[in-house]
Nucleic acid binder design. Structure first.
Lengths: 254, 254
DNA sequence: CGATTGATTGACAAGGTTCAAAGTGAGTGG
DNA sequence: CCACTCACTTTGAACCTTGTCAATCAATCG
């Protein structure tokens, strides 16, 4: 069976070859199946053939993948697992800027700059590929259509951030968590990772706290009320939205 | 005296001509003097000659300039005055996403999309120009250098938003206000609008509240303590940083 | 098994909000 | 020029949401 993605990868001489090649193929294939590289809901719809990768890395859960200012080997894309972009304050406070899901470009800025100004940390075990920047750029800048797609990713990234700013600035704990869950569900839906209003949620309560600007203790309490109200069921790493309508009303969608 | 900017504007047949042309020239000249179009600290360093504008508008203070979804006539750039990008929740809560100063492109997204998903509201009286999108794009996409400059603006916009997310999620009132003031001072410095640690600050306390995710009453109290501690002097629309070191320590810079 | 990590709970403190009222200042019309 | 109005600032008091501290419980892992 012909497989343009893995063909391309296998042809690229520079990537780390090992025993896990088919994993990479599978992961990137999944990415493509999901509609191309993305950030949030924006896509980079490349026709079949990806640029060559510099390398591919597998990282255990709870590791720091990138640090601010650190030189990037390539343009990082998440193949598998969950990661987060995070900001750290000097006294250790943390804020999750966004979650990175399979198929996500870590940041549009990484396409042009050789470093970023946030941390990237794995939440689960993560596989990520680093595309060769020059080739990635060349492919993008070659076609106006691709430039616009990249701008689309930038805009989506920005809209995401604006949404989060309004959430953190003006919404209370319950609303923030409700919106977090709905937002994640939307993104996972696009990847066919939601079944019957339920999906794997590998986040600790401290992750949810860092994403919503709350403390883990308070997240715990709010989750408790959401559970008691029959809105969500959360256990064993699986979140099931038991009452979507109520959750949406809480989250102030529509 | 030859003046490439106003020459260009005068040559452009499609812009609204009136009695205030020299105002436009002056405003855009100021913009150029300041280093080109920008967002935050990123610049679009166009060599002397701007693309033609579709029109130019003057708006009184406290008006809504743009609404989400509304069709944009062109690519809006602030020539004079202060405006804000703002998000509104369904129940009326407001969050200021960013302040727009003279020379600011309202949003990089406006270059490619014909609508945006936030409000733009004037704070003072505002003059803004709307560049013809096709020409603006053509000029940008024509040169790879310009594409990278545009991407630089996108990245700066994003970094701004990330910074704000961390502030709103993880910093307390005093820190947020301190950072707001320092951030504004930096931006105004680039425009030569700061003298001796003092600058015109046309914001009401409710603006500061909407920018920092606080209530106006609490902003008032915190301003009171900053004043009492001899850190700032704020009156008559002028902010003077009386003790920069203390303010920076509060703001957790460095 | 002991050790570690995360979830849960209680008691209490604090930061920030809400409501209400009074003070201030600039602009307006008479 | 004065009184009036309107928008904004300031202040107090009560309240509420969220944070802090501390202890316990549950689950996982070498």
């Amino acid at each position: 069976m012909s497989h343009p993605v893995s063909d391309e990868i296998n042809r690229s001489g520079s990537h780390a070859s090992g025993t896990a090649d088919c994993q990479v193929c599978a992961a990137i294939a999944a990415m493509v199946r999901g509609g191309g590289l993305r950030i949030g809901s924006a896509r980079l719809p490349w026709a079949g053939r990806l640029p060559p990768i510099h390398d591919r890395r597998e990282v255990r859960s709870r590791q720091t993948i990138l640090r601010p200012g650190e030189t990037l080997e390539g343009v990082p894309v998440i193949c598998d697992g969950w990661a987060a972009r995070v900001a750290r304050l000097s006294d250790g406070r943390r804020q999750i800027l966004s979650f990175l899901l399979p198929g996500d470009l870590v940041s549009a800025s990484a396409v042009f700059a050789s470093s970023v100004n946030f941390y990237v940390e794995s939440i689960t075990a993560v596989t990520h590929a680093n595309f060769i920047r020059e080739e990635f750029q060349a492919k993008l800048l070659g076609e106006p259509k691709n430039i616009k797609a990249l701008m689309g990713i930038c805009v989506a990234e920005q809209e995401e951030a604006d949404r989060l700013v309004a959430d953190l600035g003006r919404r209370r704990a319950e609303e923030r968590l409700a919106r977090l869950f709905l937002h994640l569900m939307e993104r996972l839906k696009m990847r066919d990772m939601v079944q019957d209003h339920a999906f794997a949620l590998p986040l600790r309560q401290s992750h949810m706290a860092d994403a919503t600007g709350l403390t883990p203790v308070h997240v715990n309490r709010v989750l408790g009320t959401l559970r008691d109200d029959g809105i969500i069921e959360l256990s064993g790493g699986t979140l099931r939205i038991a009452n979507l309508l109520k959750l949406q009303r809480l989250a102030d969608v529509n």
